[in-house]
Design a protein around this nucleic acid. Structure first.
Length: 108
DNA sequence: AACTTGACGGTCA
DNA sequence: ATGACCGCCAAGT
């Protein structure tokens, strides 16, 4: 059942620790399909059907840019959430992104 | 049932 | 350095 790609993405994202972020590519790569980075976003889009709190706001593109902020029902919602976690956001971009970068495989 | 789009990323030209 | 195309899987139309 949870053998679907979007479902695996859902589980990985749910494991993202507080104050940490990851990228679509990292998740896709972890799942074995580096090119499926777009599917990660699709999975998150479907995740709205899940009652679980999915910290999708911690998932950004490889530029550390809040590309998905537009799907958060607002414009600053995503940035505000990340800032609340101690992540600095300027112009929808994460400051010290590489330091906040979190890999599902290393979980570090 | 078929085609197009989609929170991306990497490589090629 | 910039621009364009391909790849990946699933869902929407």
């Amino acid at each position: 059942m949870t053998d679907t790609f979007f479902n695996q993405v859902y589980q990985v994202v749910a494991q993202i620790p507080f104050g940490r972020v990851t990228t679509y590519g990292a998740i896709a790569e972890y799942l074995g399909s580096k090119g499926a980075s777009r599917m990660v976003g699709w999975a998150l889009n479907s995740s709205k059907n899940f009652p679980e709190a999915l910290p999708a706001h911690r998932v950004v593109n490889r530029n550390g840019l809040l590309t998905g902020k537009r799907h958060f029902g607002g414009t600053q919602v995503m940035a505000d959430l990340l800032q609340s976690e101690g992540i600095e956001i300027v112009e929808d971009r994460i400051i010290n992104f590489k330091e906040k970068m979190w890999f599902p495989e290393t979980k570090y």
